[in-house]
């Protein structure tokens, strides 16, 4: 139930993001989900792509500072309260979320939340027990 996410350390300077997208475009790598966290000095770009193994290899080769992480992809209903019912499960179990971001999946009309937690195994169990649909890596990459 783990999904591979690639994080890239970026200095805050004009054109840096474009350098990353240019590498990905050249290698025919498609971005499934993207999130950018930033501070005044640096940013962290988090990506889920269709070919994570290739992406890691090429980004590293191009000299980017990257890290691979396992995240969880939860399907939620695209309706008011959809996210809330999932977060209730986390709150009840006192499980904290490091960060999350979402995207909309056009084939199924559902929203997908990417979630990073400290204890993924426990989170997966709680989510499954709570009836939340989780996507496998391959499912996300091929969306």
């Amino acid at each position: 139930m783990h999904v591979k996410q690639i994080s890239i350390f970026m200095e805050n300077r004009a054109g840096r993001l474009e350098e990353i997208t240019s590498v990905l475009a050249k290698e025919n790598i498609n971005i499934r989900a993207i999130s950018l966290a930033d501070t005044s000095d640096f940013g962290i770009l988090r990506l889920i792509v269709n070919k994570p193994v290739d992406a890691v290899e090429i980004l590293r080769k191009e000299g980017f500072t990257i890290r691979e992480n396992e995240v969880i992809a939860c399907v939620i209903e695209d309706r008011p309260g959809g996210l809330h019912s999932m977060l209730e499960l986390f709150a009840k179990s006192e499980l904290s979320i490091e960060y999350m971001y979402g995207f909309f999946e056009r084939h199924t009309d559902k929203a997908v939340m990417i979630i990073r937690v400290n204890d993924p195994a426990r989170a997966i169990k709680i989510l499954l027990d709570g009836g939340v649909e989780l996507l496998r890596g391959e499912q996300v990459y091929s969306l």
Binding site: Q5, S7, F9, A37, T39, D41, F42, I44, R46, T65, I66, R67, N69, E98, Y99, R116
Partner: peptide
């Protein structure tokens, strides 16, 4: 320069390092 081996994708870890 941040060492790649220790690069964390969590802002607070990097900020704590700084």
């Amino acid at each position: 320069e941040v060492n790649e081996k220790f690069f964390s994708d969590e802002i607070r870890t990097l900020e704590a390092l700084g």
